[in-house]
Nucleic acid binder design. Structure first.
Lengths: 202, 202
DNA sequence: CGGATAGTTGACTTGCGTCAATCCGCGTGG
DNA sequence: CCACGCGGATTGACGCAAGTCAACTATCCG
């Protein structure tokens, strides 16, 4: 089965049995992202990106038929540019949603907020709208709350804690990192899932 | 902008500004699923499935260039079967992950568990492994906990509550619905997002 | 029969939500 | 120029949903 970070996977279609895909947190807890049921596709992103961004594990005995990675890739090489770009975008989106899911399921408010601010920063830096020191952020604390699955009031408390800890500042539409490394450590932030630029767009 | 249930959308690429996509809960709360930043794709699934499964709303003033729905669709009509099937599967996956995310972010343990059991039931029925009355479920309460973002102990308490309320039973590898309609009401379950069979696979 | 694994239950703790003020900056209109 | 209103931010008091710890039981299996 596929493990995080591993490379050169294959993809499958589940014929019978159940499989689950999950992520492990540093504390040893895990968040299951999805269950694969018979008929479901399995391991798609790990072929397209040549790296698995989560683990999978059988729940029951399973039977699956393999879809050769080479078939998949050759199919896409004969496919219009736009179509592969679309698929790539969709997969990147899904990876982000997955990360978001894990954050909400298994991180407390502080870690979750820190992670979120870091992720936004990383994405903005990719398009030249942010630096290692911070970025302009038009969000209100209410929006942050809706994104993080928290109440606005608690978001405020958490932001204060981050501020008083000398970690980040979220004020007047500006996010400023004051201790980037410590923040990354708190959030257990790993930006790998953002720099997918797999084989498809070569 | 696109609204849930609306049809015949277009897709865009964001040139400047921020947009957020979210889902509304019946209680009036909402869960933001993602923010779109400059360079990001927007509204892809609403074109492919011809129905938006979430709302989007600008955070700031935005500029976006439209990708004509007809261009997208005609591109895919000239694309190998396997490639479109893969995209379709990826999109369905993402829709499920989104639903999962919303559930964890904005539903309490009872609603969340009910919703999850219903979703599994619906998916299994699609492939002939479940009926309106229930299905065989190989999951342990520990797995349930990891999927729902709860502790195993709390899952147990919730299952008891559901059982004593005469709603569902989760025992000896068997899920049995005793009051399907009331369960659907509690969970605010809407299976629309599972029946995507959009225009692509015609 | 013993030993593992899963389920069940109770007592206590805590993170986060809710309610309720208060404060601030800003825009609008008198 | 000031009064007012409004949306966002901030803070405190209080309550509850869910986590943790710690048994105990049931079931399965060698």
């Amino acid at each position: 089965m596929a493990f995080e970070g591993q490379t050169n996977q294959s993809a499958f279609i589940l014929a019978s049995g159940w499989v689950c895909s999950y992520k492990l947190m540093p504390g040893g807890t895990r968040q299951i992202v999805d269950f694969q049921l018979p008929g479901d596709f399995l391991g798609l992103r790990s072929v397209l990106f040549r790296t698995a961004d989560h683990n999978i594990e059988p729940v029951t005995k399973v039977e699956a038929s393999e879809v050769l990675a080479s078939d998949l890739l050759s199919t896409f090489s004969r496919t219009p540019r736009l179509a592969t770009a679309v698929l790539w975008a969709a997969s990147r989106d899904e990876a982000m949603v997955v990360e978001h899911l894990v954050g909400i399921g298994r991180r407390d408010a502080l870690e979750r907020t820190a992670h979120f601010l870091l992720e936004l920063g990383a994405r903005l830096k990719l398009v030249g709208l942010g630096t290692k020191n911070g970025y302009a952020c038009p969000l209100s604390q209410y929006m942050l709350a809706d994104a993080l699955g928290l109440s606005a009031i608690h978001v405020n408390r958490v932001l204060r804690e981050l501020r008083e800890g000398g970690l980040v500042t979220f004020q007047r539409g500006q996010v400023t990192f004051h201790d980037f490394d410590r923040l990354v450590a708190i959030a257990d932030f790993d930006r790998a899932y953002l720099d997918h630029d797999g084989p498809l767009l070569a």
